[in-house]
Amino acid sequence: MVKRNVSSLLLLTGLLVLFFVACAPERPDDLTELLTDDLISEEMKMTDEAVGQMISSVPNPVEMTILLQKSNVVYSQDLLNPSGSISNYNTNFKKALNLGVYGTDLVYMNIYDRTVSTLSYLRNLQNLADGLRIGQFFDYETLNRLSESSRNIDSVLYITNRGFDNMTRYLIDQSRSSIAVLIAYGTWIESLYIATKVKTHPPNKELINQRIGEQKIVLDNMLHLLSNYRNDPFFEEIFLDLMDLKKEFDNVTISYIYEEPVMKEIDGKIVVIDNSRSEVNINDDIIDGISKQVEYILNKIIE
């Protein structure tokens, strides 16, 4: 009896050993080249810093949206990027751009107090940020909770904006400034798109058109930022598209009148009195042209 059990034990052990042998071979990590290739160049480092300085000039969607709201523009869900499109964004390039797009959408929804709709957009932001390995910057729990109560829209906006700011800075610190640029670009294009598509009447229309015209300045900065990455075919493509937009904006003229600004102390704070002025020369045709090109660019981004 004992002999029987010993032999069956041996048999089983043998099977086990076989198992181990069959499954032991470890997949070799032929990732050594990834760990040894020397791809650093000094140039990039310089660009990171410069990018960091310039990227803050890309306007925050809050300003544009506040203007729209003040101009009694009606909220329109159709202008936003559908939440479900996210499943199409597989590359970092696409993810970053659309992170910006959805960011603007989120701000838009919050300012118009459409907090219910924000949930899936928040989830999208989280998803895309995770994909880009920058998910640690959004306290989604807090955002969610805050969204539920409209009195905290200001806090919501604060946290969102601060999150984007931190994200941008982190990316630059991590030498991933290209991603930061794409996010900023996405944010900006979406705001511009919404601004060019809304229906308004004078006198609000004038204000909005003026603001659109002023984006000409941003566009130049944007081109400057994008030009750093033109060796990448994807960047090249959006650069060229932006150049086409520039052509439209070339029709916009801005005139400046310079005055000496004066700094005054009033009630323990510094107040500036500046009589310098700028005037934007723009008409509906130009707006149309801009609008079409913006739409074209945006559609490429969000497809």
Partner: peptide, 28 residues
Amino acid sequence: IRFNIVNNAIDEEIARRVSTSKKHEEYT
């Protein structure tokens, strides 16, 4: 630095797989 490189490498691989709309569909 290495993280960026690896991250880019993966991203390039994905980009290759979605380069045409047909490939994109397959990938999705």
